[in-house]
Structures are given as structure tokens and as C-alpha cells.
Amino acid sequence: MLVFPPGCLLGWVLARREFRGRSLLDTFVSLPLVLPPTAVGYILLRLFALDGPLGPRVLGFDLDLLLTWRGATLASAVMALPLVAQTARVAFREVDPRLEGIARTLGLSPLRTFATVTLPLAGRGLCAAAVLGFGRALGEFGATVIVAGNIPGRTQTLALAIFSDIQAGRDAEAMRLLALTVALAFAVIYGAEILLLRRRGRP
């Protein structure tokens, strides 16, 4: 969920702004989509390692990401970012820029235009972006396990916990987590669906 605002922002930038290196940024953002999650995890690990470019030695303080829940969050976010950004980008692309132009001529500032025209019109796509991002983060395994490890009670995500339980033969535990995961996923997707239906059905 953390990645949603920056993901949307990236999507908007990619959809609406013309600048040099846009394709490069586009490729860079999409990279985690194509790379094996373990490779992404390893990149993060090296970045934040003790002597990595973003590690404590270079920065002078510790971001405290490795083997912590923050690291698990970061790994999930990085893996979800391309899905969120690309979906958001499509959503913004589908908003007719001329509608934004009309809003401006009616006296709305760029920011207000974004809030009252662009966002509502991109709403459905942004909702889809959020669901996709959530799904990806929930199921993320490879990058998380490398960055945050699989420490029960600290960095163990649902996906990791299910894996551990199956490995250890704790079938009952695994089933319990499975039910929890299904319930969570169901709630999110169903909630999004209801939200979309309500918006569409508005008089």
C-alpha cells in the first residue's frame, strides 16, 4: 500500500510528461517485473549491505532494512512498483487531456484540475493498480526472503510463513494461514469491485 502514491505519481509522469530519458525511466521502473525476484532481492541486499552504496558505512547511519520488517516492506514495494506504475499510467493515459484543458479554462488551477477531473476519471484504473500492487506484495516471496530473511514473528510474511509451515509439515498451521490469505485477498478484491460498482452505478 505504501507504494501506491509514488506508483501513481510515476504512472502520471510516464503518461503525461515529455522529457529526455523517459524511455530509460520507463525501462528502469519495469525492470523488477522481468527480473527474477531473487535477483531484485540480491540487488537490494547489496545496496543496503554494510558497505553498500546505501549502507551504514556510506550514509553514516543505518536505515535498518536488512532482516527487518521494513526490509520486507521495501522488497514488496519494489516488486509491486512496476505493476502499480504501469497500470496507473494506462489509467492516466485514458483521461482525455482536453477535459483537463476545459477545466483550466473554467478557472481551475492545475492542482484542482488534477484532483477534480484527472483523479476521478482515472479512478477505476487506479483502483485496479492498487489491487494488482496489493496482490503482488502479498504474494511476494523471492525478494523478501533475501532482503528480510524469514524470521518468524519479525519478517515472516504470509507467503513465507506458508512456505515454512509446509516445509516443516505443519499442515494445520498452513491451512490456517491459507484461509487467512484467501480471506484477505477476497476482501480486497471484493471491496474494490463494490467500490467500482458504486461509482459506475451513480445516477
Binding site: D96, R98, L99, G101, I102, A103, R104, T105, G107
Partner: peptide
């Protein structure tokens, strides 16, 4: 001067109403 400060009322050919 940005469009929001010109005080015009633009009525485009295809009306361009806000669909939401």
C-alpha cells in the same frame, strides 16, 4: 497567462462535458 486566469468560456465542438 495560464488558461485559468484568462476568464474565457470555451465551448468546444464536441462539448467535452465531464463524464463523471
Amino acid at each position: 497567462l495560464p488558461p485559468e486566469r484568462r476568464g474565457v468560456g470555451y465551448v468546444p465542438q464536441d462539448s467535452l462535458l465531464f463524464p463523471h
